[in-house]
Design a protein around this nucleic acid. Sequence first.
DNA 1: TAATAATGTCAAAAACTTTTTACATTTCAA
DNA 2: TTGAAATGTAAAAAGTTTTTGACATTATTA
Lengths: 66, 66
Amino acid sequence: MDNRIRILRTSLKLSQEEVAKLCDVSRQTINAIENNKYDPTLHLAFRLADILGVKVDELFIYNKST
Amino acid sequence: MDNRIRILRTSLKLSQEEVAKLCDVSRQTINAIENNKYDPTLHLAFRLADILGVKVDELFIYNKST
DNA sequence: TAATAATGTCAAAAACTTTTTACATTTCAA
DNA sequence: TTGAAATGTAAAAAGTTTTTGACATTATTA
């Protein structure tokens, strides 16, 4: 599962820490998800998409095979 | 987080068990998510949406407040 | 009605996500 | 080039999702 967090986040000039606060999760969580270390819960995915101004389906790129 | 799993699933004439098999999770997991017992992981949300023929953003209704 | 399929639910364990604390490395502006 | 901010990473603990097995209830259909 790929994602477009970094590109959207940086184009909004937000740090991982700022996004973390807006999502009410830790900075490490944002870092891990951005770097594809594990899948977030759906709830967090929605919060992230909301903050980054896109739909969940636009933020995460699902790969049917994995 | 509300969802439209049941209505889509039944309109496809699929049982919870059949959907579970297609998603490669247990029947109890499908039942719990359908009945809003807890949020799925994003990966499962994508598998479900895919099987039910909709986008994640169409399958789950995010409520900014919760 | 009786049998069968489908759904709801529970508890314990397994698996996974997230937090916390801490430190290393990279980036960027002064 | 130095200092500060941002990012990467790790390990243990906490929290949440998912599995498994089991049984009860509700729906469906013969």
